[in-house]
Design a protein around this nucleic acid. Structure first.
Lengths: 230, 230
DNA sequence: ACAGATATTGCACGCCGTACAGAGAAACCG
DNA sequence: CGGTTTCTCTGTACGGCGTGCAATATCTGT
């Protein structure tokens, strides 16, 4: 219907690309935390007036949406697309890769769970999940439900993990964060919350890769039950 | 060391209470979505100048924190504190109550996962979870890990559910949201994403109570595996 | 009556997203 | 080639945000 891109069209050439803007936004996000990628800061970084950004994106929401898509596109399917590997291992690789991708840049996490992930790369990820779960022997309906469960677990874990630290910038090393949590949990009143107090050591490690994998394995165990008859 | 509250102290009496401010914030959140609870809007609603709010809370983060605590305090433990009931049923009640509490007021969800939930009511909830999972026969360490898994699942599910709708104000009825998702998923290109396209019907229902419970049951199945020997 | 503590206000600063009008550059048509 | 069209980018501006500062009004204890 509408020719989406007219090639030879008048007007001066753009001095930037959408990618330039997304690059700037990601840089700002990594340096200054989740509020650092303002339109004005992006514009300053790429060297234009703030409203010039609106030449490339209709509004800030569109920038965020494009950012999410770009991040999801960075997922390397190579690792877990090998259908010769066992499905659990492929799924674990996928989960670990997503976590690594996001915890390396905590400012981006809130952005991703702030709106629907429905772009092409999100779909591709979903397709891959369905493939893996199909290889696991699940019926299509169960595979779809299980795929969403995995998504919920992965993004829920990561969201709670980054919500735990107040600081902007990169996440401190795991050991340091655990130590911080440890001293916080040490103040748990034993008489009112005996179980919580006793579990303080484990709770301090909630944000660790170990707990992440433990939970993932329980989820996969639960999913696997679908394949066996009731 | 420091007498925390001096009872007879000079100066005019406060015209408000912390609760007045929190009430106003919740009302604004429900009416206008997650950005509606600005300090200025809260102040206007309770009839004071914007900076009068800083008499009651040191900054906006403190308001949010208090808001989270207040919401967690609203959880009615009565339903699932009855240790005579089977543990799965109690846990299911807890999960459903949390979901009902939050989806009824979608503006509040982002706020809750935006920072650590470490107040007394959050601890009380954790304690209850540990109790239930202890009754399920889990060792303390496994119970702690499982408690966190449940938390991740519950808040992850709810976060993704409310992230799916763009509008402020109350969540539309489930059926309406499913219909919207259905028509969105209908556009999935079959040749590139065959599995996703085939699963569009299921995916449209990801935000339903049915899927929520399906996932929860898989999680509980996975957790139950801890009690049985390897 | 007075002194000191406190609640609240008005004003201000520096951010934010973005709407609007205009200047300048580049491609098209004659 | 000139003129017209179309597009990019800028300056300016509006309303909103969180919040710091100084002043004012109000209350308590001496």
């Amino acid at each position: 219907m509408v020719p989406p891109i007219k090639r030879g069209r008048p007007g001066p050439r753009r001095s930037l690309s959408q990618d330039d803007i997304l690059d700037a936004a990601l840089g700002l996000l990594d340096e200054g935390g989740q509020n650092a990628a303002s339109i004005r800061a992006i514009a300053a970084r790429v060297g234009v007036a703030p409203n010039a950004v609106y030449t490339y994106f209709p509004d800030k929401a569109a920038v965020v949406k494009a950012l999410v898509e770009r991040l999801l596109g960075r997922v390397d399917h190579g690792v877990f697309a090998d259908r010769g590997q066992p499905w659990r291992q492929r799924l674990e690789s996928l989960a670990l890769e997503l976590r690594a991708l996001l915890t390396a840049h905590p400012g981006r996490v809130t952005m991703m769970i702030g709106g629907p992930m429905d772009g092409p790369h999100a779909l591709a990820l979903n397709e891959r999940l369905l493939e893996i779960l199909g290889d696991a022997g699940l019926e299509p309906t169960d595979a779809a439900r299980a795929a969403y469960l995995v998504i919920v677990y992965v993004f829920g874990s990561i969201a709670l993990e980054v919500a735990d630290v107040a600081t902007a910038g990169p996440l401190p090393p795991e050991a340091e964060r655990v130590a911080t949590r440890q001293s916080a949990f040490a103040a748990t009143p034993v008489e009112r919350f005996p179980r919580s107090a006793a579990a303080a050591g484990v709770a301090a490690g909630y944000i660790c890769t170990e707990q992440y994998l433990w939970g993932l394995h329980r989820v996969l165990d639960g999913i696997t039950g679908c394949t066996a008859p009731g």
